[in-house]
């Protein structure tokens, strides 16, 4: 099962990952940090990791 590791210190809350995730997994929380709100739908496609300009998000497959 793929899961996302989000580094809150690096996340700027720009929302690009929320905008582009193909399976609509991500949202911004109250502190404007990315969260995997629907983590069970993550397919490990790496689009969020690819799109994040701040290296704040990593896809873990194992």
């Amino acid at each position: 099962m793929a899961r996302l590791e989000i580094n809150n210190a690096a996340c700027t809350g720009c929302g690009v990952c929320v905008e582009t995730c193909p399976t609509d997994v991500l949202r911004l929380d109250a502190e404007q940090k990315a969260i995997a709100a629907y983590g069970e739908d993550c397919q490990g496609c790496f689009v969020c990791q690819w799109d994040c300009a701040y290296e704040a998000i990593r896809v873990k497959l194992r």
């Binding site: 099962m1 793929a2 193909p22 739908d41 490990g44």
Partner: peptide, 13 residues
Amino acid sequence: PWPGSKLGYMPVD
């Protein structure tokens, strides 16, 4: 993903 499968990869929808 298939029940029991560890990974999907391709767009699931």
